[in-house]
Amino acid sequence: MNKYVKKYLRNDKLAHMWCPGCGHGIIMHQIIKAIDNLGLDKDNICVVSGIGCSSRAPGYMDFDTLHTTHGRALAFATGIKLANPDMKVIVVSGDGDASAIGGNHLIHACRRNIDITTIVFNNTIYGMTGGQFSPTTATNDLASTAPYGSIDRPFDIAKLAAAAGASYSARSTVYHANNLEKLIEEALQVKGFSLVEAMSMCPTSYGKRNKKGTVSDMLEDYKETYININAFNKLPPEKREGKIEMGVFKNETYPEYTAEYQKLIDRLKGDK
């Protein structure tokens, strides 16, 4: 058995519930590898999720794990982190969970720059419930609630987090698994709010309806479409068509929320 699976997963809860070809298992794997690389204490990690396919991941992970209500993972996580700042708090969330119903919590967690690492499993669809469009579904893509093609414009979650004030924001894909692991590892070391958007294929509820071919075709697509942000920026505008940036969008140091709160407590003690 894979040593990471043995060490970090609740083996009695496997096999997982994700469909064959789903990218989510790869993301979960890269998260535990990153945790292992950093030698983090298992007893001091808390993984929080909302509702959806991605949000089932914590059930398999052998830490303190909290499966909350739809969209609210970051709000629960904020309470945990502020009440116990020594804990390493990780949120796993889907694109709908994080940017639709939980969009408000996402931008405010970024704004506060609270020390939480959020991994968004972005498969651009509500997969668990049969393929309704999400805020990251591309315009014109088909979904059960966009039967004639979506007329909505999608969010760019990594850029949204960067603009909302997060210390760290990055994007990768399950095709670029090694890169994804490296970015998660970086994010986990940030003292502040960090977000990694992990593009993940949903063959069942998205790929089939949108005629994306086999799972390998979808992985191939990631390989062709996603290019490093620095390379992307060097491209002339006409060659950017059809390409999407990946890599680190932001890595800045800002005051961190729980540390600022501790300073406030210390200041009040000093006043006595």
């Binding site: 929080v48 909290l66 909350t68 209500t69 609210r72 709000a75 629960f76 996580a77 904020t78 309470g79 945990i80 982190k81 502020l82 009440a83 116990n84 804990m87 408000n104 919590h105 931008i107 405010h108 709160y261």
Partner: peptide, 23 residues
Amino acid sequence: KFIQMEDEIGGIAAAIGASLTGK
């Protein structure tokens, strides 16, 4: 700790999260 959350839903969610740490 006191936190003014972004909305009512976040407020109770944060309070539940904090309670899980024993507070």
